[in-house]
Structures are given as C-alpha cells and as structure tokens.
Design a protein around this nucleic acid. Structure first.
Lengths: 164, 164
DNA sequence: CATTATGTTCAATATTTACTGAACAGAATG
DNA sequence: CATTCTGTTCAGTAAATATTGAACATAATG
C-alpha cells in the first residue's frame, strides 16, 4: 500500500465521521475503494489498517448491516472476504431521508402540545409538510436520474479526459 | 411547563442528536417550540432546562450560527431574548446536501488513486456523479415545492381537522 | 463609582463512544 | 481427537465530546 493510499484511508475515515459513521468504518471503506483487489480478507484489512481484530470484526458487521460492504465466500477457502457492495444511490439517499421524516415527526409532536396556534406552529407545519412531501418526491427524482445518468456520466468521463 | 412538555423537550434532545447536534441544542429547540411564548430569555431557558449558564450560552450561540434560533432585542430591556427563526426548508436541506458533496469528493479522490479501472471505480463514479447532479436538481425540487406547498399544507390541515 | 444584571469563557468533570486485546467458540484439517 | 484457522464477544481502557460552575468582562443603574 503506497503512502498516498494510506493517507487517503485516513482522510476517508475523517470524512465518514461527518456522516455519523465511525472513523474505522470510513477507513475500511477507503481501503476497499483503493486497494485494487476484487475482495480482501479479514486479516488483510487488519494488517492494512493496523487495527484490532475486535474493531475490524465489529465494524465490518456494521458496514454489512447498512449495506456498504458485502461478504464474499470463495470455494476451497474458509476465510470470508469483503468488498464494496453495489449499493444503489437511491438507497443511500433514502436512508438519509428517514432522518428527515423523524425530524418532521418531532416537529408535529411539538405542535400538538402547543396551546396556541402561532408563528412557530406555522413554521413547524410547513417544515414538517415539506419533508414528508419530499420523501415521496424523491422517487420522481430518482427516476429522472435513471433516465439521464448515462449521458451525465459519459459527459463527466469526457471532461476528465479533456483535463489530461 | 407541563410534565408532557418537559418530556417532549427530552425527546427532542434525543432526536436532534441523530442529526449530529448536541442533546442540549435539541432541548433548547424543543423548548422554544412548545413554550408558547413569542420569545424567551436566557434565564427562562436555563430554568426550564435546569442546565448551566455555560451550556445555554454556548448552545444558543451554536443554534444562532446554524440559523435555527435568532436573538431578539426588546426596547427598555437589557436582556437578549431567543426564538425559533423562520429558517427556510430549502436552506436546512441544502446544508445537509453539502455533506453529500463532500462524500462525492472523497469517492472521486479514491478513484483517482486507483491503478485499475474496475467495478469499484465504476461504482464510485456513479455515486459521485449522482450526488453532484442531485445538488443542482434540488433547486428544481424546491421550486416545485414553492408552487405546490399552499395546496399541500391546506390539505394536511383539513386532514387533521377531519380526524377530530 | 459601587452595585447589579447579563452573558461569556474556560478549566475541570462527567458522560459517551470507539477501540483494544485476550479469552472464547466453532468449523475445518490432519 | 488435537490442532489450527477464522472470527466473535466483551470487559477494560482510551479518546472524544458535552456539560458544569466559577471567575471574568461589560454594560446599565442608582
């Protein structure tokens, strides 16, 4: 593993902390992204990240649960291997939107406890309504992405080539 | 403050932790939502939440910085009062989307460090492209909301009345 | 100018959370 | 069945973060 890649892995760790994930989870994802292997074993991860067995065990489980990583089994090999899963963009986004719906519920509950119908209750009503509406609207957005993505990605690839 | 409201304030504290905010920030917002006053003083917040001066001071500042709370000054009164600000739904959402753009950057950087063009680099390219596209697309979604919100909120209000 | 009111700052403490490492369990191998 | 390999569990520790509380700054009041 090159110095640059090791450095990237730490950056990924920090970045994923912003999403409420642990630094170790970010490191593992970062490693799986840059390692240039189809899949890697438990011990490879441990060695690459210089972390404890317990930490790798717990964190890979977490990553599998939320769907970013998937375990791979190979014939004639008792080890489990791990790789980045082909998680759909929609499902990553939708998981995040669940948080907004929770937020909307809290606002609604707050409004129901008020004795007055005032500026604040109008605000909580609008914000809550928006997030609930948005939760449905997102499906339309994702459909649009499916229609347009081929062109958008091709364009992006060409842009990168022009930069060289 | 009724028992139910005090309980709600704690719930709000927990809920806002899910957003990476502190529990105290959630409590303050919860209190401002249910207190049924136009604005409340520093000491009212302190007493209602039974928290320290330092904590209220620091947390109100945070909430003001991110725009959820605004300070209010009243004539003939040297105290500062605080209230929920009329933060636009769009700005709350857009702040969150910044995180996704950061996520996309990390994926791009990871791809640039790879020696192979493989399944993983295709995945990071697609996910990153999506979030960058989505960052622009969101403006269209917000425009649609502005056009439709009046009807949607009216509908929601009627639904609530029918439940009674 | 002394006193009171309002809030800020920051070092100390409490609390939460992540991580380690050693003991353990189960499954494959010889 | 003993041994090795692979991974899990969990108590203890380390590290990060939130909260307190006392000292301090500033501005208003008498």
């Amino acid at each position: 593993m090159t110095e640059k890649k090791l450095q990237y892995i730490e950056e990924a760790g920090m970045a994923f902390e912003l999403f409420g994930m642990t630094r170790m989870a970010g490191r593992i994802l970062g490693y799986l992204i840059v390692c240039d292997k189809e899949s890697v074993s438990f011990n490879e991860i441990m060695d690459a990240l210089k972390a404890s067995k317990g930490s790798i065990s717990g964190t890979t489980k977490q990553l599998i649960t939320i769907g970013f990583v998937e375990p791979v089994s190979l014939p004639g090999d008792r080890k489990t291997y791990y790789r980045i899963s082909n998680l759909k963009v929609g499902s990553i986004l939708k998981a995040r939107i669940q948080l907004f719906l929770k937020f909307a519920d809290v606002l609604d509950k707050g409004r129901s406890l008020k004795e007055k119908n005032d500026r604040v209750s109008e605000w909580t009503l609008e914000v809550s309504s928006f997030y609930k509406w948005f939760g449905d609207e997102i499906d339309l957005v994702l459909q649009k992405w499916e229609r347009e993505k081929e062109n958008i990605i091709k364009q992006k690839t060409e842009d990168n080539e022009n930069k060289l």
